[in-house]
Design a protein around this nucleic acid. Structure first.
Lengths: 216, 216
DNA sequence: TAATGTGAAGCCTTTCACAGCA
DNA sequence: TGCTGTGAAAGGCTTCACATTA
């Protein structure tokens, strides 16, 4: 393969392709063309081919892609072909919801631990996970957990982030925008719900102009 | 202003700047330079200046930006300088958590209604919102609600999406990736938690290789 | 002097068109 | 014929350096 740089955007799209393929594999179909997968997902066919070509040629000209084989390939690329364990910190409303979120299963993730600093929550069971005290975060390395999910309130985000780094976590998915990563060589992905809603607002002409509501 | 195209990426960053400014305005400081705001947020100073310049010159050379004024300007750009009401559909674990999510407040959003199709949930109060039957979605237009938040399970996403369109919703924030928008001229932003975690996985070398676990 | 606003360069990503293979 | 894989073109975004202004 002759590409020396793989676009982040291509990586970002791979999980979508994987989801589509998994869905299509349930219907008894063996092969699929980039065109049909693209239609199924509502994307462009050349985009799919280009993205896959960054990682190698997985298809057969004139035929298409073998669904099962491509699923294995993408899993391998995303390093999902092994147990990937995550720990969640902050068992509030959002944290509990994420713990019970059924969507992780198809990608093979296991949320293997949950932590909180509220004594009332420690020991409680959410699904099949027992909430532990945040002081136990240091056990993560031994337990081979290398992904962290932050669902604590804004004020506690920085401290939580630092603790996860100390605990040897290598990647963080955070639902709070309130922290700085410094120069740590750690991958962080932030999901900021309110920010996304604000961004949506930009694109939508409002249905009302309440008198005196608009500011200068 | 001489730009004919404003990058989506610039729009995406505005809410971040707004959050930083709001945070800084609590400290009694009137002016701020792009350099200081950049340091505070952990971004580049020229990026901030460039992004703001797409919308017009808001600063004073040699001095910086007036914090309060810039907050008003960004609010106006993002159309947050008026009441923006959103309706949430799907009062499960995730939906309830989003309803109670405190982060919307600083951007001035109001989640004004919540819907579910489960009779057990209808009539229940979450925070100060009473859950309504999805059949009442048609009342949204009258109630001047033009943003929708989808937190239903995957299987119900497409139907929910269609119903929101019919109800006159102009923008959708969806936590489910399982729908197609068709050629509707509506803005949709999707938050796919599992997809983001998969993407994170790509960047993280795993701490373990369980024997026999890795596939082909 | 201190900071903004911006043209231009450079880089990354998307799109296109088509050679080549089954 | 049908579909992949990819070089090249086009487009969009980021970074830089500096003219300009208070």
């Amino acid at each position: 393969m002759r590409y020396n740089k793989i676009p982040d955007e291509a990586v970002r799209r791979l999980p979508t392709y994987l989801r589509g393929l998994l869905s299509l594999s349930e219907q008894e179909r063996k092969k699929i063309s980039s065109q049909r997968l693209a239609d199924f997902l509502g994307v462009n066919h050349w985009q799919i081919r280009k993205d896959l070509s960054y990682f190698g040629g997985f298809g057969t000209p004139g035929i298409g892609y073998d669904i099962e084989k491509l699923i294995r390939q993408i899993r391998k690329i995303l390093k999902l072909n092994m147990v990937r364990k995550a720990a969640l910190v902050g068992v509030g409303n959002l944290g509990s919801a994420v713990l019970r979120y059924p969507g992780f299963r198809i990608y093979g993730f296991e949320i293997a631990a949950a932590f909180d600093n509220n004594p009332k929550k420690i020991g409680r069971k959410i699904g099949h996970i027992t909430v532990e005290d945040v002081s136990k975060l240091q056990t993560l390395q031994k337990r081979k957990i290398d992904l962290g999910i932050i669902t604590v309130p804004c004020e506690a985000a920085q401290e939580t982030f630092n603790k996860l780094i100390t605990a040897g976590i290598k990647g963080v998915l955070s639902f709070s925008p309130c922290y700085k990563t410094g120069r740590k060589k750690i991958k962080v992905i932030t999901i900021d719900i309110a920010m996304d809603l604000s961004r949506l607002s930009y694109y939508i002409p409002p249905s009302q102009f309440v008198a005196g509501q608009a500011l200068s």
